[in-house]
Write a protein that binds this DNA or RNA. Structure first.
Lengths: 198, 198
DNA sequence: GCATAATTTTGAACGGCGTTCATAATACCA
DNA sequence: TGGTATTATGAACGCCGTTCAAAATTATGC
């Protein structure tokens, strides 16, 4: 019993790792059931004993990516000046996106299936990302309520996300990466300057 | 000759309209070749005489959507105050996204095929969207060069896009739409306030 | 008007996909 | 060791976009 379960656990782990490597190398729609099964050493049908679905597998990979992203943002949040700390977090986000393009994209490419929404841990981890902004925002906008700052954190995070999204897409053709970082830093500083005025 | 060509043109038009309606109703991956062929009254293979590809068809639909979006932004850019004009444009973008969710999403869901990049008119129309920001930005940041302002326009546009992207996604579950508009307006005003400081 | 050539339309067929499930293989227990 | 429960297997299913030989239609020359 335990023997078999152990093996299954290891296979499952190998499967997730293989999926992660595949996505990192070739994008999230290069995930093919037959290919994965062969790589992991399981029969085609056997995949569905390790994982319910290819979608579920992608979610498992996303969980890893979110954890790594969270760690990267944590590591960046060292500056004492609140505005510069926000800048550092934003730039860390940008670098993570650059260095993990396909996996980062996979985070948002989940097809919306009507009957099976994202599991709550996924939403919770995403919300956890906003937490990195809470402390600097408390100092930048001390007159706002906690709830207002929470909304602000989400909005600013989304704004940076949008700039990174377009920037990474265009990086391949037009704009050099350093310029993208400069734009992000400038925007975050503008937001901070604008927020302090209110 | 002209008779046959006319008919083909009309069929092509009907095909694009049907595709647009299908996407609007059920999302961009509800586009099925067999379904479209039946709806337009063409055989399955006949589709590929009207259009090279389903991807090309999606691009044709995107062209229409981009034209409508551009018109919506134009109609919104009436306020004399530059900051408030930018706010109005951003809100118009948000409303367009809300009212044309599936078609708006389809604008950015193009799978990157290595050998066939987006046609240049697509990129050009996208750049055209940024033009709406040029005039107000000239007044908000008069000390910057034209090129710097162009970059600024792209960055701010992307930022609003990011906020709308997450906002529309969460609208369905958490945040009421009006709050989203309020956040966008606040952010744009902050950016303007921050920019004037530089 | 007719025969012939050029063009266009057609849908069966192809290859690929995710997923399922009857069957075979294996592991477990007495 | 024999019998049962559990797990692994891969052929088969349904659906997909796309192709292409053949059929139908249209155009051309006489």
């Amino acid at each position: 019993m335990t023997k078999a379960e152990d093996r299954r656990g290891q296979q499952r782990e190998r499967l997730i790792e293989t999926a992660e490597a595949t996505i990192a190398a070739s994008g999230h729609d290069a995930l093919k059931a037959r290919e994965l099964a062969a790589a992991v050493g399981v029969s085609l049908g056997g995949l569905y004993n390790l994982v319910g679905d290819l979608d579920e597998l992608m979610l498992l990979v996303s969980a890893r990516t979110l954890r790594r992203l969270d760690a990267a943002l944590s590591a960046a949040a060292t500056n004492d000046d609140p505005a510069e700390r926000l800048v550092a977090i934003a730039l860390a986000y940008c670098r993570f996106a650059r260095d993990n393009q396909a996996l980062w994209r996979a985070l948002f490419d989940h097809r919306f299936v009507e009957d099976k929404p994202l599991p709550d841990w996924h939403a919770r981890t995403q919300l956890g990302l906003f937490l990195h902004l809470a402390e600097p925002l408390r100092r930048i906008a001390p007159h706002k309520s906690d709830e207002q700052r929470q909304v602000l954190a989400r909005t600013w995070f989304s704004a940076v996300h949008g700039v990174v999204l377009l920037g990474i897409a265009e990086m391949l053709v037009a704009v050099p990466y350093d310029a993208l970082e400069a734009q992000i830093a400038e925007m975050v500083r503008m937001l901070c300057a604008g927020a302090e005025r209110t």
